[in-house]
Computed example of a mutant assay.
Amino acid sequence: MEIKLIASDMDDTLLNKDCQISPRNEAAIRKALDAGKIFLIATGRMYVSVRPYAQKLGLDVPLVTYNGALVKGSLSGKVYYEHKMKLPTANEVLAYCREKGYYLQLYVGDSILIKQENDCSRMYTKISGIQTTAIGDALYHTDEEPYKILVMTKSEEFADVWQQFKEDFAGKLDVTSSKDNFLELMEPGVNKWEAVKSVAASYGVQPQEIMCIGDSNNDVKMIANAGIGVAVANAKDSVKQNAKIITASNNDDGVALVIESILTPQAAE
C-alpha cells in the first residue's frame, strides 16, 4: 500500500517543546513533497496560528484547522469548507460556562474572544502566538457563529467537566480535548478525520492511502481510520491504542522518523 497523503497534528506532535518544527522534521517533509506526497497540517489551532508554519514549509495545500471546522488554503486563502457551531448552541454553551464560572475562549473569525486576560489566556498566547481579545461580559452572547469554543479547567476537574458537557449537550456538540485541560467544543460531526478525508478525496486519495500522526484525543478518529495511524511516543494511551505505529516523541523527531520510513524503497514495494 502506497501512502499518498500525510496528515500531522501540530502541538506535541510536529512541534517540539519550543513550539518549533525541528530541522529534521522539516527536511523529512520536504523530501516527502519532492517524492510527490501531499502533506497536510490537521490541528485544533485557528487558521492564522497555523499559516506561518505552512508558509515556512512551502505548503500549497488546504489546512485543517479548528479540529476540522475550517479548511482553508495555506497560500491561496481559499475556503474549502466551514462547519461552524450553530448560534443557539453557542449561546447556550456561553450561558452554561458563565453559570459554572468556567474560563472559555470563543473563536469568531480570526479572533479569540475572552472575558479578561489571566494566566490561562497568557499561556495560550505563548503557545499559539495569537493575542486574545478581552471583551468583558459581552463574551457571553454572540451574534456570529463560532468555529469552536475552548474551555480550560483545572487538570483534576477535567474528566468530570468533560463528562458533564457530553451529558448536558448530547447531540448538540462534539466534545474532545487537545491537552490535559483544553476541552474543545465543536458542532456535531466536526473532527479532524472527516476534514482530512474530504481533502484527500479532492486529490483522488483513498482513506487507505492516508497516514495520520498525532498525540491527543482530538487525533484519535483520524489515527484510527487512516490507512496508517501513527502515535508519537508522548501520545496519550487512548491514541496509542488506536495506532498501527508508535514513533519517537515530538522532541525526538518522531514525525521525521515515520515519514522517512515510508520513503524508503522497501516501503514503496
Rank of each mutant, 00 (worst) to 15 (best):
E145A: 15
V161R: 11
I262G: 10
F182C: 13
S76G: 10
G171F: 05
Y102N: 01
V190A: 10
E2C: 13
L33C: 07
L5E: 13
G73Q: 03
V258Q: 10
I21F: 10
E157V: 01
N16I: 12
G73T: 01
A201C: 12
L106P: 07
K192G: 02
D215E: 12
D137Q: 11
Y96H: 02
N181H: 10
D160E: 15
P265A: 11
K240G: 12
M211W: 13
L104F: 05
I135E: 03
E99M: 11
L183D: 02
K115C: 03
E145K: 00
L113T: 08
K17E: 14
Q55I: 01
R30H: 11
K17F: 15
N181C: 11
T43H: 06
S128F: 03
I210E: 07
I127R: 11
G136C: 01
K221L: 13
L94R: 04
G129W: 12
V93R: 06
Y147G: 00
D215N: 15
S202F: 11
I246P: 02
W193V: 01
N218L: 10
A268D: 13
G129T: 12
R51Y: 08
S8G: 08
E92T: 01
L75T: 06
S202N: 12
A32I: 02
I210N: 08
G227K: 07
D180F: 15
L185G: 08
E194G: 01
L183V: 04
I3S: 03
L63D: 01
D60Q: 04
W162V: 15
K86I: 05
K17P: 13
L5Q: 09
G254W: 04
I3M: 11
V220G: 00
R98L: 13
C19D: 12
A27D: 00
S8I: 01
D110T: 15
Y53L: 10
